[in-house]
Amino acid sequence: MLSIKNLHASIEDKEILKGINLDVKAGEVHAIMGPNGSGKSTLASVLAGREDYEITQGSVDFLGNDLLSMETEERAREGLFLAFQYPVEIPGVSSTNFLKTALNQIREYRGQEPLDAVSFLSLMKEKMNLVEIDKSLLSRSLNEGFSGGEKKRNEVFQMAMLEPKLAILDETDSGLDIDALKIVANGVNTLKSKDNATIVVTHYQRLLEYIVPDFVHVLYNGKIVKSGSKDLALELEEKGYDWIKEAEPTH
C-alpha cells in the first residue's frame, strides 16, 4: 500500500529525514516511535503533503501512485488520512459543513454521487456513536474551543467519516486521559480491516496497549534505527530511548 524508499526531507536547509525506508501493507498496523525531535512528526507531515518541507531525495509510492507529486487534497482523495497532533481551530466553519464538503469532494473524485442530506446525517449518527462524540460539538465551529481530548476524538470521528485506506495518527495519544485514550483507540480498532492500514506515531508505549501494532519502528535522528514486533515497544518502555541512540541503523 505504502512504500517509502530512501526519503530525505529538509526544512530551511536543515535535514530532518535522512533516508527513511518503510513498507506498509493492507491490514497492517505499524507503530513509529522515537524520542522528541527524531523526525516522527516530520514524516507524518511529509506524507500528508505539508509544503514547509523540501524533499531532497527518495520516493513514496501509495497504491501505485507517486505520492510526492500529488497535491495534499489529492492524497486525501486517494485515501490517505492524517490525524493531526495539533488539530487546527477554524472559527466560522461548522464541523458538519466541513465534513459534508470534504466527503462529497472525495466522492466526486471517485466518481460517486454526492450524499444527500438524509444519508449524510445518518452516516454522521452512526460514526458519532463509534467515537462517543457529542452532537453539540459538531454543531459548533470546527475544533473551536474544544478541549484537547475533544479535538483528538474529532480527528478519529473525521477518520471514521472519510474511511481512509491509510490512516496516520500523529501523537494522537498526547494530552489524553486514559478514558479518552480508550475511546480513541476503540474507534481506531473498530475501523481496522484487512483492506486498510494504520501508522501510529507515538512517543509512549501506552497507546500501543490499546492499538496493538504488527510492527514497531524506532526513529532516531531522521532514520529508522530499529524495527521489530510489538515487544520492541515494551523494551523501549523499559530501557528508555538511550540504548537505541547507540544502536546501528537497520537499513
Partner: peptide, 29 residues
Amino acid sequence: DEEQLFYLRSRGIGQQEARSLLLYAFAMD
C-alpha cells in the same frame, strides 16, 4: 491562515474550495 488551509485540504477539500470556506467564515461574523 496556511495551517487552516492545509487542514482543510488534508481532508480532501480542494484548494479553491478551502479558500472560499475560510474567507466565507471570516466574512460571516
